[in-house]
Amino acid sequence: MHLIRLVDVHKAFNGLRVLDGLNLTVQQGEITVILGRSGTGKSVLLKHLIGLIRPDRGQVLLKGVDLARLPERELFSVRKRFGYLFQHGALLDSLTIGQNIAFPLQEHTSWPRSQIEEVVTTKLAQVSLPGVEHKMPSELSGGMQKRAALARALALDPEIMLFDEPTTGLDPITTTTIRQLIAETVRGLKLTAVVISHDIELALALADVIAFLHQGKILTQESPVSFQLSPLPEVQQFLKGEPD
């Protein structure tokens, strides 16, 4: 059963068409990796999924509800079901790591402080970052920031996780750690995940389904094995890394 469906989504910025009649289906409990070259609008696509960006045309259906037409207030309650890991973590830099992870809990629960602190400790342990509660984000390395951000994204126990370029800008070892971490958490918690990346290795290792984004459209959406064998020249060019 499909959890998310995008139907004929169009989006343009200042006359530049970014999404141009895009269709995509995300099945419940699967990890869908959207591959595509830089600047093809992968982040824009991801932001459509939680209504951060509304399409000019088309539908963004979450269990049959069109987020594109949803009033903002209802959109807010929908967003609580999502966890979003931003490319650079996007931790609030005026708060400590602990405060960052506690933030969604304070905003959306009425839990006592002790319970929130407990969850913060658990989530940090989950991402293998124990004991950094009182550090500021700027005191952490990029990889650690990303892990802390993952802990924050998981704080409200979301159904759907969205990952924006989770391994971009990280060294190979950290990349592997993060990849394993994503696989563990998503599989372990039986979440649905949408990952956007240009990291082919990550896609092949992690994905149940790979969707290929090219010129504002999803060209193909298939399993990693068949994706590698795709006859589409754009996919083959991308896989081999050939210049234009």
Partner: peptide, 21 residues
């Protein structure tokens, strides 16, 4: 400057994603 930085480092989007306006 602070809000601008938050905007360009996606902290504002992060707030929205966490359902905080």
């Amino acid at each position: 400057a602070e809000l601008g930085t938050m905007r360009v480092t996606e902290q504002v989007d992060a707030l929205l994603a966490m359902a905080v306006h």
